[in-house]
């Protein structure tokens, strides 16, 4: 256990926890976009910046989602420096994705009045935080998408920008995406997954009893493979089971 203070309040925390873990566990607000509790932190969005003073009295800005707690750490989540740097980050994100409703709301909340940078034309809402790809890899285990290329060409995409052979159409990527860049909708017997670089359609499996389309065929295949059960075990939707 280590002792640290956040905004003047004292906390005890287990070693290995991050500043963000402690703050969230104690209702201290730190804005985040690329963080999700089920996925390893990555530090891509830079929105969760806080100011720390370490034992030697040195002040610096760190990403709270990655910074592990230390004995005697003094964390401030609300200093003028933190506020201004967050606004700056927010402005960059908004310049990149002016169409994202979520980002605009967050911008308002953080006090961004106007974006001083020229705004991106193509209406893509992806901030390249890679949360979708990390969830797909770490949680689902499908690894269907990733960040590709480098620098200004960086994009979220499937390999070769082609239909993915490993995607099971579970929609986890759309679920975790913090900006609404990925859409997942079911239309009749088809699931449509719309990503910045590709739109894919998948067949849905029909429940034998009630006839409802309940999961993508590929996801059912995936269940079968994972669980070692037979395909017959998955003929019914969860409601009819």
């Amino acid at each position: 256990m280590v002792k640290l203070t956040i905004d003047g309040r004292e906390f005890q925390a287990e070693e290995g926890k991050t500043i963000l873990d402690v703050a969230q566990g104690n209702n201290i607000y730190i804005p985040t976009l690329c963080y999700h509790e089920s996925v390893a932190p990555y530090g891509a969005c830079r929105l969760c910046m806080v100011e720390i003073t370490n034992k030697r009295g040195k002040k610096k800005l760190v990403t709270s989602c990655l910074y592990p707690v230390e004995e005697g750490l003094d964390v401030k989540t609300d200093t003028p420096r933190v506020v201004s740097v967050r606004r700056m980050v927010m402005e960059f994100l908004l310049a990149r994705c002016p169409d994202s409703e979520v980002l605009r709301k967050l911008g308002d909340k953080l006090g961004v009045e106007k974006v001083r940078f020229s705004q991106e034309e193509d209406k893509n809402k992806c901030i390249l935080c890679g949360l979708c790809a990390r969830a797909c890899d770490e949680v689902v285990g499908a690894s269907a998408i990733s960040l590709v290329n480098r620098g200004v060409d960086r994009q979220m995409a499937t390999p070769f920008f082609d239909a993915s052979a490993t995607c099971i159409a579970c929609g986890s990527c759309a679920f975790v995406c913090p900006t609404g860049a990925i859409k997942c909708e079911d239309i009749g017997d088809t699931r449509k997954l719309t990503m910045p670089n590709i739109t894919q359609e998948f067949r849905l499996a029909k429940c034998k009893a009630c006839g409802a389309y309940w999961a993508p065929e590929r996801q059912v295949d995936f269940f079968v493979k994972k669980s070692g059960l037979t395909r017959e075990e998955y003929e019914l939707c969860p409601d009819c089971r």
């Binding site: 690894s143 590709v148 290329n149 480098r150 390999p159």
Partner: peptide, 26 residues
């Protein structure tokens, strides 16, 4: 492309990882 696909199979790593690395370096 077939070479990268074979690398993914041979090393038992996702094609996404191979493709990310291959497109990252100039």
């Amino acid at each position: 492309r077939p070479a990268l696909e074979e690398v993914s199979r041979g090393l038992k790593i996702p094609l996404t990882r191979v493709y990310s690395v291959a497109t990252f370096f100039k």
